[in-house]
Design a protein around this nucleic acid. Structure first.
Lengths: 143, 143
DNA sequence: CATCTCACTTGGATAATGCAAGTATCTATG
DNA sequence: CATAGATACTTGCATTATCCAAGTGAGATG
């Protein structure tokens, strides 16, 4: 039995079924932050995804309606991958991940984007603060 | 070679090295949303994590400074897992995941928390909108 | 002190991933 | 218009991770 065989309708679990593996998120990062759009560009990323896994993840992200594939307008060999509107809903998650990674890795390249990262921090408002305070007191969101 | 053997200092990748597998995030969800704190409680979650994977993930999350383990004050068999301050920095990510999962799963239990979810949505402010608009025009954050 | 509870470990089967190589389609060049 | 190079994949095999069931050891309970 695979993990995703148990269908809970917890919204966090639903999100994880779509993007809950590292490679999928790295692909989304490549598009969102670096403007990559093709198979070849994804393969060339620092983290060295293999072509078999990349093909699998791209088709998953398409299946989940997060990415769309279009033929390149002039070069028929290429396919262009882009976010759908549903995919764009993941932007806040990717922003928060950039913020956290920058905050906790002294060597992070995020430090070169200080003003951008502090803008992310500002979007984390009163609700986040409220939840954190609750948890500091040993409580939980729904308890 | 494992994925995490390639050390990029991309902040998103750094975050993924810490919590980039589904089980870790489900553990954090259990603590944050449901107030679970012990091994037994995590095992009893809907998604059926196995004890071997749970033990592995808990020690990883401890190693990354996201969770701390304390002995139960009265029952010496139990250990209490709680978020550290570093771990609390992940709260916005977990909130955004709840928001997205609720928005895209018609059967989501998140629909029972409408006012809470709409508060999450309100925290996603002008920066997210700006990034999304850029991407709709085929551009990227840093391009 | 026998039994139960809790937090793990261990071992063996199954599934996912990594790696190298190959294929099909399209483009660019002589 | 044949040939070489690009691009987006597949395929096959070795390695690694996960699942599942059962066991262990320390502490609680009656």
């Amino acid at each position: 039995m695979k993990r995703t065989d148990v269908k809970s309708h917890c919204p966090v679990n639903f999100t994880l079924e779509a993007i809950g593996d590292p490679w999928s998120l790295l692909i989304l990062r490549d598009i969102m932050y670096f403007g990559k759009h093709t198979f070849k560009e994804f393969v060339s990323s620092e983290e060295r995804i293999t072509t078999s896994v990349l093909a699998d993840r791209l088709s998953n992200l398409e299946k989940h309606g997060i990415l769309t594939k279009q033929p390149h307008p002039t070069d028929g060999r290429r396919d262009i991958y882009m976010f759908t509107e549903k995919g764009l809903g993941l932007v806040p998650i990717l922003l928060d991940m950039m913020e956290w990674g920058t905050a906790h890795d002294p060597k992070s390249t995020g430090h070169r984007k200080r003003t951008f990262v502090s803008r992310i921090r500002k979007e984390q408002g009163s609700l986040s603060r409220e939840v954190k305070n609750k948890m500091r007191r040993g409580r939980a969101v729904f308890v």
